[in-house]
Nucleic acid binder design. Structure first.
Lengths: 228, 228
DNA sequence: AGTACAATCTTTGTATACAAAATACATTGT
DNA sequence: ACAATGTATTTTGTATACAAAGATTGTACT
């Protein structure tokens, strides 16, 4: 029998994970800007913990590519160059296409109903124009497809790669002129998966990335987000 | 059994990186077996360092997927299941194909000569039958192709994914019946890249992975490498 | 004024100390 | 004999202490 005081799962997370999530969020939202130094004591005071969990969190951010270590100088938020973004997107193009193909074969009946719901919901939310809601609906939709592959490694990789672009996604979504396009792309992916048409699904996924790429690269040229 | 993975003090890397490399190597060579617990004090004594660098190394191994954290129990070497290997290979199939395609477009003149050399060398070494040399030649060959893409993110991902299978590669290479096949596959990839035939290169890369998959899965069924 | 050098200050790298949780084991009560 | 409980031990989680490497600043000398 469960007792009825609700437990905040965060309380059970080790501090390092709380810090990790906090810092990651701060980096991805742009609160911590590229080139900004991550000073341990400063962060420790700010977050009210000791240096140890800060350091462990930084180790993980380092391996994730969100921070760069400079020997004997510590960590700083990784610079995002146009090249590095293109590299990420090039990989994502291949992996998203793979996802779409695999999803065609492996999506379950429940998966299909979730997918339909998510697709409809995205369309609905996009027409209202609330950027936050659109972003969430977009993530939810893609997550269903990725999860449908049943490949945990693929899920992990795509999530990681997607993260790298969260900083730009927001402005990219705010550009309303692309909304109709976005809806169509999603719909195309959705329909292909429903029909089990792997070729078409993969092509649609690639197109979707291509369009994102154009949009994001344009953003980055307007707002290079450099510290200096 | 006295497994003495010693710290290479010659390196002037931070201790955490030395420990990280040491532990990773130990895991990939099978010196540390799946399910084995990584106890901090024990490792610290064994490597002659304190717990701090051990912990930081473990955080990175955790994110790399080589160790699993069990809440309030610590780290253990990640189990390799047939499923997890298939997941990795499924991703690699896509990424290796991408590599091959990109290499077709982007390989330089020097790249081509290196590639030819590496290909010839692989063939030569394979005919002699020295497993270690074969493994090295294989890595060298693939590395040239991966590097030729000029995509650092892709390089990093493929290296990481390849690692997951190093434990099995050795026995897979020792199976001499597959050598002729291996040479042919490499030659096919090589020629396609030289001719800039993306389609063919990608197909060859996929075939190469498929054959590896069969071989490795067979190995894993013979030797499940479980602790218990 | 400009440069070289030294003192200081900051920040990281590493080690250790202390606290809390989990496990193993013994002890007690029925 | 067995279950429950308490205690010791182990191990992780977190904090702090100390040392070493850079960076900074100020000063003296040219």
């Amino acid at each position: 029998m469960e007792n009825d005081f609700t437990v905040n799962m965060d309380e059970f997370l080790p501090l390092r994970d709380v810090v990790f999530n906090t810092l990651r969020r701060a980096i991805l939202t742009g609160e911590l800007k590229p080139g900004e130094r991550l000073m341990e004591i400063h962060l420790a005071n700010r977050l009210g913990v000791s240096r140890t969990p800060i350091r462990e969190a930084i180790r993980k951010l380092e391996l994730e590519g969100l921070v760069t270590m400079i020997p004997r100088r510590g960590a700083e938020v990784a610079q995002i160059t146009e090249k590095s973004l293109q590299d990420v997107l090039e990989v994502r193009r291949a992996l998203d296409a793979l996802c779409a193909e695999l999803a065609c074969d492996r999506i379950t009946a429940e998966g299909k109903t979730s997918l339909k719901k998510a697709c409809d919901h995205f369309e609905e939310v996009t027409r209202t124009g609330d950027a936050v809601a659109i972003a969430e609906a977009d993530v939810a939709l893609h997550d269903i497809i990725v999860q449908a592959t049943g490949n945990q490694r693929l899920v992990q990789l795509i999530n990681n790669l997607s993260e790298q672009m969260y900083r730009y996604r927001f402005e990219y979504i705010k550009d309303e002129s692309g909304h109709e396009n976005l809806i169509n792309e999603h719909r195309m992916i959705y329909e292909s998966i429903m029909n089990g048409d792997k070729e078409k699904a993969a092509a649609a996924a690639r197109l979707h990335i291509d369009n994102q790429e154009r949009s994001i690269i344009r953003q980055i040229r307007i707002d290079p987000r450099r510290k200096n």
